[in-house]
């Protein structure tokens, strides 16, 4: 599905002394099947932005088109939109409520009015995708699982709805490095298998840079810059100016450059950095 956002503005606590403009005239386009990373500081408006895409927040002004239907118009069935746009909030494990993992994952599909058989198939699929063994976990209480496992149950609950767009708000926040890596790998696998749009929100570019097709940088409620990882790489000085966390490999290469050692390729990840440095060393000897 394609998503087009035009001049979106959102204001919290309008009319009060502490009103804040969370989104200020944001316009962007996301193509079908694209894997997009949205990065920015806390308070840059990224969470507010994604909550508009499935109609949970209403904009002050502006339009949102999903496959050319304007979801800000009156009379649009939001429940239909929410079936197609899945949203995994920050710390989604706090929304678990059923007594078994299986029932909790089935909550979304059941709300969609699917048959029990279809729901069962989807629960199996979703659990496999997030890497939870059905036999081992289906009957257990979600509250006795570890943090990383709870997180996967919550994500499976949204994946089971088979959304065409999957939005993830900081899915790796607060996890240990192993669980962190698992989730990132799961996202890549999910994108390859289902070909759905994935919007990955993060405050850390390191997570995003390696896996996405496109990066959108938010700053103070505006789109600061957008483009492919390589294009964003060229703007790293600007990113550093606004104090954004950029990949360590990128920082390292910049330091090399500052000392007059020039690297031609855009280096974003640790692997690329290693390769480039090896090349440089070989040239020298």
């Amino acid at each position: 599905m394609s998503i087009r956002i035009e001049n979106l503005t959102h204001i919290y606590n309008k009319g009060l002394s502490y009103e804040t403009k969370a989104l200020d005239d944001v316009s962007l386009t996301i193509e079908d099947k694209e894997f997009v990373g949205i990065i920015g500081h806390t308070g840059s408006g990224k969470s507010t932005l994604i909550q508009h895409i499935n109609g949970i927040l209403k904009p002050e002004s502006g339009r949102i088109y999903i496959n050319d239907t304007d979801i800000t118009e009156k009379g649009v069935k939001l429940s239909d939109i929410r079936k197609r746009v899945g949203l995994v909030f920050q710390y989604p494990e706090y929304q678990l409520f059923e007594d078994t993992v299986e029932k909790d994952i089935a909550f979304g599909p059941l709300n969609m009015g699917l048959s029990p058989e279809e729901v069962d198939v989807r629960v199996h699929e979703a659990m496999e995708l997030v890497g939870l063994d059905h036999e081992e976990f289906a009957g257990r209480s979600p509250f006795e699982l570890s943090g990383g496992q709870k997180r996967r149950v919550a994500i499976a609950g949204v994946i089971a709805m088979k959304p065409e767009v999957l939005i993830m708000d900081e899915p790796t926040a607060g996890l240990d490095p192993k669980a962190h890596k698992d989730i990132v790998e799961m996202l890549v696998k999910l994108h390859r298998m289902t070909e759905c749009n994935i919007l990955l929100v993060s405050h850390n570019m390191e997570d995003v840079a390696e896996i996405v097709d496109k990066i959108i940088v938010m700053h103070r409620g505006k789109v600061f810059s957008q483009g492919s990882p390589a294009e964003i790489y060229k703007e790293r000085d600007r990113l550093l100016d606004i104090g954004l966390e950029v990949p360590q490999a990128m920082l390292f290469m910049k330091k090399l450059e500052d000392r007059g050692i020039f690297v031609e390729n855009n280096v974003m990840t640790m692997d690329e950095a290693v390769r480039e440095i090896e090349k440089l060393l070989r040239k020298r000897t």
Binding site: S79, P92, L96, N111, G157
Partner: peptide, 30 residues
Amino acid sequence: IMKAQLARGADFENGSIIKRAKGLIPILIP
């Protein structure tokens, strides 16, 4: 929590009183 359950297709506004009361469970437990 309400937003999260809304995103999973929960409905708090429509249906009979009993259905709406049941709809509160996914909010109250978390």
